[in-house]
């Protein structure tokens, strides 16, 4: 039941995006601009620039994702539709789950477009046998970021300056995650010989994901309480 209701919420959000394209458009444009600006700032031809790529990937994920997260709940305060979700006979956790899912899918779409664009602009090549590892890091990193972000976006949407509060709350909380995923990405893309260190980073990120997702799942209900 909980999963079914969550899927309905996610479907509603994605359908909204499909109709208005407001959030995903902003996320995409912003991420692409980040990539472009970096390509101006650093000469893509110089070898040491390649070392920056793992960091750049997560910069665009974080900034693109932040835009999406902000919209997810601020959009629900228009016409007070968030209350319509709160008075519906569904578990509060299913709203959190549905919002997470929709945000996750949106951010993955953005990554799917922006990251190849980054590789292309920087003429970046890496050992394709580690592509699977790279995608795995991307998935668990995005998931953790969205899990924490959705919870905090629900919280910040209740304040008057949600756009400012969200990054302030989110950055300290996701910094362990970001350290972990950038380190692991660096290993997979630039120095696959250090595989074991990447594995331990991934384990850390995995544990972070589980804890933060469980926290969001359980705490969302109390955030909606007035």
């Amino acid at each position: 039941m909980l999963i079914k209701d969550a899927l309905k919420i996610a479907k509603k959000d994605l359908y909204t995006e499909w109709k208005t394209k407001a959030t995903i458009g902003a996320m995409l444009i912003f991420s692409m601009l980040v990539v472009l600006v970096f390509s101006f700032a650093f000469d893509p031809m110089r070898a040491n620039v390649q070392a920056l790529i793992p960091g750049l990937i997560w910069v665009l994920v974080v900034f693109g994702g932040m835009l999406g997260l902000n919209r997810a709940f601020v959009a629900e305060s228009k016409n007070d539709t968030i209350f319509a979700l709160n008075i519906a006979p569904i578990d509060a956790s299913s709203v959190y789950l549905g919002k997470c899912l929709a945000n996750f899918i949106l951010l993955l779409i953005v990554e799917l477009i922006a990251i190849p664009f980054l590789f292309l602009l920087f003429d970046y090549k890496f050992d394709l046998s580690y592509l699977g590892h790279f995608i795995l890091v991307l998935l668990i990193g995005t998931f953790g970021f969205i899990s924490a972000g959705t919870l905090l976006a629900a919280l910040s949407a209740q304040t008057k300056s949600a756009e400012m509060i969200l990054p302030l709350l989110l950055f300290p909380i996701v910094s362990p995650l970001l350290i972990g995923v950038t380190q692991a990405t660096k290993v997979f893309l630039n120095s696959p010989e250090n595989l074991s260190s990447a594995i331990s980073w991934i384990q850390l990120v995995g544990a972070y994901d589980v804890i933060i997702f469980a926290a969001g799942f359980l705490l969302y209900e109390y955030i909606q309480e007035v």
């Binding site: 909204t16 109709k19 016409n79 007070d80 209350f83 319509a84 008075i87 519906a88 006979p89």
Partner: peptide, 16 residues
């Protein structure tokens, strides 16, 4: 909540 219907000041419908 399944038994209760609520019509507040705000419309609680999605604009788009």
């Amino acid at each position: 909540k399944q038994m209760v219907g609520f019509l507040p000041h705000a419309s609680m419908v999605y604009d788009h």
